[in-house]
Amino acid sequence: MKRLEKTTLQLRAVSVLRRLKASRTYDELAAETGLSASDLNRYVNGHVLPGVERAGEIVEDLGRATLAAEIESRIERNEDGYVDNTDVVFDQPLLDLVAGVAAETFDFERPDAVLTAATDGITIAGAMARHFDVPVVYAKKSRETGVSEFIDARQRLTPGIEITYSLPASALDAGDDVLLVDDFVRSGSTQQLLLDLADRAGAVVSSVFTLIAVGEDGLDTVRESTGAPVVAFTRLPEASEPDMYPRT
């Protein structure tokens, strides 16, 4: 591990501890982490950084659980069952931390590009792209008039309803290794379209990552469409009503 990577990991561990400390005393945090209250005080207040090995343990053992709990606490559902994740996807510092923790937790390899769908997926995809220092490209439901060539993917959701996403043909090169990222998956339809776009561009999807998944059906649908690993940072229970959680 290079020196910059080590320092980044150490700072990420401090960020995780600070989020935990916001709702705990040092004694409570010590009981939860197994670290001494005096060490935690020094880490949280920036006097020293945890060692690289300890930082890795903090990020892997506490990071995902801490951030997943915070994400779940910010999600709201109205009386009709619609999911509002605005308080998550609008918080760029939170997503920047999630991206680093997810990369460590799921052991993603550095891709050539991150692919997502406009619009809510852009913030988490951008965070992941910054983590790896690679471009982020996103498909849209409309075409830009100044772009001359597009790749399209279409899927019929129900009789009479079809969804289309378009990607500038120059956005991905043949052979590119792509990390597919989205903020939300329920049915898996959007992610299937993104997989189709990557395939049409001649790119190879190495992993599929979603910030939030509702149930397992959508994840299973995506897994059936690709041989790449498909993972979710956090999951919500499936709704009892069939028309609830309409996000795709």
Rank of each mutant, 00 (worst) to 15 (best):
A31F: 08
A31R: 13
A31K: 14
A31G: 08
A31D: 12
E32A: 12
E32H: 08
G34I: 07
L35H: 13
L35W: 13
L35A: 13
L35G: 09
S36R: 07
A37E: 12
A37K: 12
D39A: 10
D39Q: 14
D39E: 14
L40G: 11
L40Y: 13
L40F: 12
R42L: 07
Y43I: 08
V44S: 15
N45Q: 10
N45H: 15
N45I: 04
G46E: 12
G46Q: 12
H47W: 13
H47L: 14
H47D: 15
L49P: 03
L49E: 03
L49Q: 03
L49S: 03
P50H: 06
P50N: 06
G51T: 09
G51K: 07
V52I: 10
V52G: 02
V52T: 14
E53C: 01
E53P: 00
E53F: 02
E53N: 05
E53K: 10
A55L: 10
G56E: 04
G56V: 05
G56F: 04
G56C: 02
E57A: 15
E57Y: 13
I58Y: 07
I58S: 07
I58P: 11
I58L: 09
I58M: 10
E60T: 11
D61I: 06
D61M: 15
L62A: 09
G63R: 12
R64A: 15
R64H: 15
A65H: 13
A65G: 03
T66R: 15
L67N: 12
A68F: 13
A69Q: 10
E70K: 12
E70A: 11
E70S: 04
I71K: 10
I71A: 11
I71P: 11
I71R: 09
E72Q: 05
E72W: 00
S73I: 01
R74F: 04
R74E: 06
I75T: 06
E76P: 00
E76Y: 01
E76Q: 09
E76S: 07
R77D: 00
R77W: 03
N78M: 00
E79K: 00
E79R: 03
D80P: 01
G81A: 05
G81V: 04
Y82F: 06
Y82L: 02
V83P: 01
V83R: 04
V83N: 00
V83M: 04
V83F: 02
V83A: 05
N85I: 03
N85S: 04
N85T: 00
N85M: 01
T86I: 01
T86S: 04
T86V: 01
D87I: 00
D87G: 01
D87F: 05
V88L: 05
V89N: 01
F90V: 07
F90M: 04
F90A: 08
F90H: 05
D91K: 11
D91Y: 06
Q92W: 03
P93F: 08
L94M: 13
L94N: 08
L94F: 08
L94E: 08
L94W: 05
L95M: 10
L95F: 05
L95N: 11
D96K: 05
L97D: 08
V98A: 03
V98M: 07
V98L: 09
V98D: 02
V98C: 04
A99V: 11
G100R: 10
G100H: 11
G100N: 10
G100E: 12
V101G: 07
V101A: 05
